[in-house]
Design a protein around this nucleic acid. Structure first.
Lengths: 201, 201
DNA sequence: GAACTAGTTGAACGTGAATTCAAATACTCA
DNA sequence: TGAGTATTTGAATTCACGTTCAACTAGTTC
């Protein structure tokens, strides 16, 4: 028998297990048994904690998103100058490679968001928060005279996040020439014209 | 009994039916019975033409992609000056709204491309062809002196396609403020700095 | 350490989907 | 027109999954 755990501990485990199962089988392909296997439990045990699998999946997606976003914020807090912030943020929005679990998970949402309102809302809220994050970097740099913005910061920020998103897909789809480094350089080339700064950290 | 059709006609029907079924249920959620229902046939009939459902799904995705791309090329051929071409192409890469079937279908590939090599290859090949399309517009405009490019045309083209992709997701996910018009304007703002042209058609 | 509680298992059951295939039907062409 | 062929159906079968639940186990409490 698998190690016994408290209700809260087990729920955390299950959310992690669901995250892995989604990455492996797709948000519409995950089965109860996949989650159980990832968690090292039987289906019955999973059902004991989450009588409705779809709720667990939503929680897993939600948790994955929050983790991704919080991690970016945390990294951001380690530096102060706007140039470093911008460069670092661009990097942290890209997958480390085709197998990056965080981005793989988010990518699963793309298609489902068109069919499922809950996923649409989740994904939209992540996008908006990331836009705010970029916008505040741009505005700060602008106020300090480091950046000379080529347009309004909201539009620039929206485009930066959009580029991240798109290259995330390219990288996880294993584009033969666009990897993390190339994608970062492509986004940086946009960021340079947007900020009028060379962005050499 | 459903109307009898020739092998080739029926296969075309089935590809269309599969396309609709994928949009409705997701690439990993589609079932044989969904396709059969969309086609107005029984499961047995579908299996008679496609013993392997996954092959039909790949063909449906392939056909959807080709159609999307060919349609863009055809539109592009109706105008000659680079400014009109660029503006029109940006528009034709965006969904008409959250329900746009072509983009909905493509979005289904995003997540699956990370798990399934075939889908990864399909999606990557579409991306690359779209990049070429933009690149040729940019190069022509540059040669004619209409555009003064802010960087190499390949990078600019890659970013333009990336922006289209990303806003396609935003729109199908029903972002409350980013619709087709707003997305087009955001991409255009990038295209303006990229080409040094006001892009007023 | 006995009674109680919470978590887990495994087997039984029901459901729905894929698969198979013989029979029925509609078309082709001699 | 009639024999032959291609397409479709519908029923039977099998399989995989979700669901339920009684029994079991490991903690917890008094």
């Amino acid at each position: 028998m698998a190690q016994r755990k408290s209700r809260t501990d087990r729920r955390i485990d299950l959310i992690e297990a669901a995250r892995r199962a989604i990455i492996r089988h797709g948000i519409d392909g995950v089965q109860l048994s996949h989650v159980a296997e990832e968690a090292g439990l039987t289906s019955g045990a999973v059902l004991y904690h989450y009588p409705d699998l779809s709720e667990l999946l939503v929680e897993a997606q939600h948790a994955g998103m929050e983790r991704f976003y919080e991690q970016r914020l945390r990294q951001l807090a380690t530096v102060t100058d706007p140039v470093s912030k911008l460069v670092m943020t661009i990097r942290s929005g890209l997958p480390t490679g085709p197998l990056d679990p965080d981005v793989r998970l988010l990518n699963e949402l793309g298609g489902a968001a068109g069919r499922n309102r809950v996923y649409g809302v989740l994904l939209t809220s992540l996008y908006d928060r990331q836009v705010s994050m970029y916008q505040s970097i741009l505005d700060t740099g602008s106020a300090l005279g480091v950046f000379r913005l080529s347009g309004d910061s909201l539009s620039l920020a929206r485009n930066l996040v959009a580029l991240e998103d798109a290259y995330g897909y390219r990288i996880t789809a294993r584009h033969p020439v666009i990897g993390p480094d190339e994608a970062a350089e492509l986004i940086l080339s946009y960021a340079r014209t947007a900020t009028g700064n060379d962005l050499v950290a």
